[in-house]
Amino acid sequence: MAKIILITGGQRSGKSSHAQNMALQLSPNPIYLATSRIWDEEHQLRIERHKADRGNEWVNIEEEKELSKHKFEGKTVLIDCITLWLTNFFFDNDSAIEQSLEEAKAEFNVLVQQEATFIFVTNEIGLGGMPENPVQRKFTDLQGWMNQYIAERANEVYLMVSGIPLKVK
């Protein structure tokens, strides 16, 4: 049976740092499952900097959408992040919320059938008010619904506020 931990919060709230510390407490060699596509040169440099900051104890895997194709039995896996992962579905599906949500839920369900500890990092993008752009509103809805889906299934949920983890569940 999988153990699911969800860490959520705003941008630069300390989510990833907290998740990394938690993973290192659970395993000497955790897996870092990065979901981001490389959008431009600045983004590539940011990704390389993050990899270097993590250190050699991490096993790094980059996977844009098909997280469950990797075998994680008995491992501690940090998935960073759900927001970028959903972005990949959203763009590939031409902003179709229902299709993106269905595909992401199905992939999540297969992933967590593995007996492993999964630490998911996500963003609470809906805290900042109603986006002006219709595409942003659609994505905010998608993100909120997926966060709820994962949180409902999670053993533990943490909300990061200014670098401080608040246990929600």
Rank of each mutant, 00 (worst) to 15 (best):
G126K: 15
G144M: 06
W145K: 09
Q136A: 10
K138H: 06
F118G: 00
T122W: 02
Q148M: 10
Q136P: 01
T122L: 13
L142G: 13
N133Y: 11
G129P: 08
Q143M: 03
E124D: 12
N133T: 07
I125N: 05
G163A: 09
A151C: 01
G144P: 00
L142W: 03
N123T: 14
L159Y: 15
F120P: 03
V161L: 11
R153E: 00
N155F: 04
R137I: 02
T140D: 00
Y149R: 13
N147S: 06
G144L: 00
I150Q: 02
Q143D: 01
W145H: 08
M160Y: 11
T122K: 04
I125Y: 06
G128C: 11
T140Y: 06
K138Q: 11
G129R: 14
I125H: 03
G129F: 10
I119S: 01
M146C: 00
E124N: 02
E156T: 07
L127R: 12
P165K: 13
P165G: 08
L159R: 14
E132S: 08
W145Q: 10
R153N: 07
P165V: 05
D141E: 14
N147M: 05
E152P: 08
M146G: 00
N147D: 10
G126A: 00
G163Q: 14
V161Q: 12
V157Q: 13
M130P: 07
D141I: 09
A154L: 09
N155E: 15
G128M: 14
V135F: 04
E156K: 10
P165Q: 01
L142F: 07
E152A: 06
F139R: 02
V121E: 09
F120W: 15
N123A: 13
K138D: 08
P134N: 12
G144E: 12
L127C: 10
N123L: 11
G144K: 05
F118S: 05
R137Q: 05
Y158D: 08
Q143H: 10
F118A: 14
F139T: 00
I164Y: 00
Y158W: 09
M160V: 14
R153Q: 13
G144V: 10
V135D: 14
E152Y: 11
V161I: 15
E152R: 10
P134L: 05
P131L: 04
M160Q: 10
V121K: 07
E132L: 14
A151H: 05
W145Y: 09
I150N: 02
T140W: 04
S162T: 13
